[in-house]
Design a protein around this nucleic acid. Structure first.
Lengths: 245, 245
DNA sequence: CACAAGCGAGAGCACTGCTCTCGAATCGGA
DNA sequence: TCCGATTCGAGAGCAGTGCTCTCGCTTGTG
């Protein structure tokens, strides 16, 4: 990619990384709202004004953290999808069963990352920060998880097809437009269901993480796994055999 | 309820209301993170220290706003459910169809309130504020929307029943526990689906409100209506007639 | 080698949440 | 009616914040 030209540039990269690292640490301790540039600088043994050589404002630091967080949660999702790209050991289970397992595995990986990095998750999927509107740099990384979900749906569709009821007229055109850019091979009904499932997935995670399930849902792993499976069913990833009775 | 005893108490109530009103105004302008007690006090023509007679800290002011917001969005949901308690004009449509319409109407009302009060919505369903853990006063108001969703499901179940596939073992006991407190008459599978649908509903709303649908979903009313209908189907609120082919 | 660019340090400004003290207004009981 | 107690607004003050500007020192480049 970009090559390091000299000692100055190398130092700049290292200091930038150290600032983000320390900021992430303080973020995990006290949350985004209490994250202060001065405290980060103090902890790094530099004076606050020096930090402005690396990030022009507090919002720019937060933006960098947001991009990193999107990348990290996207990488977790991609890794989970990659791990199940081919049938592992057990030979039983149809290809469609495999894609459903992939789907729930991706959902579980996203949730796992969120539980492990609650404040970074809140940074990207909680309320947008003060008067802050996402700059263009974030939209790429922000779509990584969505792209993984699309890829799983595409693999399943290439396998044996995803059947969904057709959509109301207005939505059908909309779904065709969305699908045209992201997944031209998928039926509009699947595209529409995918977008909804994508949002709903983060609804489940956010409610768990932000305390709405407090004293309500206890068996959270099982609850989430089941709900993720239902989301998969909603986009057409059905279990191969429907158990009779 | 509580009666006003004298001029002092009446003044206190009025000033408290004025502070919250002004705080809400500034909240809508600049978001929760930039809401400052001093600015509120300044706008009200009082000195900042005087404001502490009414709210011991900034977090307490935010807590009051949170409770009000939960109450407002809960009231919006309750109103929508009440409006459709009995079949309006059109006589066609089975009772189950009515409950599905009630369900989507409640979802739409919640979304409408969120779109009209984005910052207040972010306050309650966005990231929890700085190191702030919800005090006990909020859990009552926080559950109003959920209770409305439960009530619609209960009315539908009393009508002609809600059929849901049974749950995996671990979840069945969990759903029975949850249902025991909130809706003893509902089958565990419905309870479980309700909790998931509740979280997923706010996933849809949050993604729209927090900009994740930017340049992705354009026909948002139609998209949401359809997704809310699918959520209703997920708890067993099926359309009376399944269109063949 | 000289010039320019990058960098850290320090001072400073306007702002914040919050505390404390001090009078004035108000209330309740005798 | 009066008087002590409570409540309240005003002001000063403290520690902390984001951010700017200036001043030298260091480092890379022509």
């Amino acid at each position: 990619m970009t090559t390091v030209r000299g000692a100055r540039e190398r130092a700049r990269i290292e200091v930038t990384a150290a600032i983000k690292e320390e900021a992430r640490r303080r973020l995990a301790d006290e949350g985004a709202a209490k994250l202060s540039l001065r405290a980060v600088a103090r902890e790094l043994g530099m004076v606050s004004s020096a930090l402005y050589r690396y990030f022009p404002s507090r919002d720019d630091l937060l933006t960098a953290l947001i991009i990193d967080a999107y990348d990290a949660i996207g990488a977790a999702a991609e890794q989970a999808a990659e791990d199940l790209r081919t049938e592992p050991a057990a030979p039983e289970g149809s290809p469609r069963g495999l894609q459903l397992r992939r789907w729930t595995a991706v959902c579980a990986a996203v949730r796992r990352w969120a539980l492990a990095h609650p404040h970074e998750y809140a940074l990207i999927y909680g309320s947008p920060v003060p008067g802050y509107s996402a700059p263009a740099d974030t939209i790429g990384p922000a779509s990584r998880v969505g792209r993984v979900l699309i890829a799983v749906a595409q693999d399943a569709h290439r396998g044996e097809g995803l059947a969904r009821p057709r959509l109301p007229g207005a939505l059908s055109a909309e779904a065709r437009r969305i699908g045209g850019e992201l997944a031209p091979d998928l039926p509009p009904a699947v595209v529409s269901a995918l977008v909804a499932a994508w949002a709903q997935l983060f609804g489940l995670i956010s409610f768990e993480l932000f305390g709405q399930f407090h004293r309500l849902v206890e068996e959270r792993d099982a609850f989430f796994a089941h709900a993720a499976g239902r989301l998969g069913a909603e986009i057409g990833l059905l279990e191969p055999v429907a158990p009779p009775d």
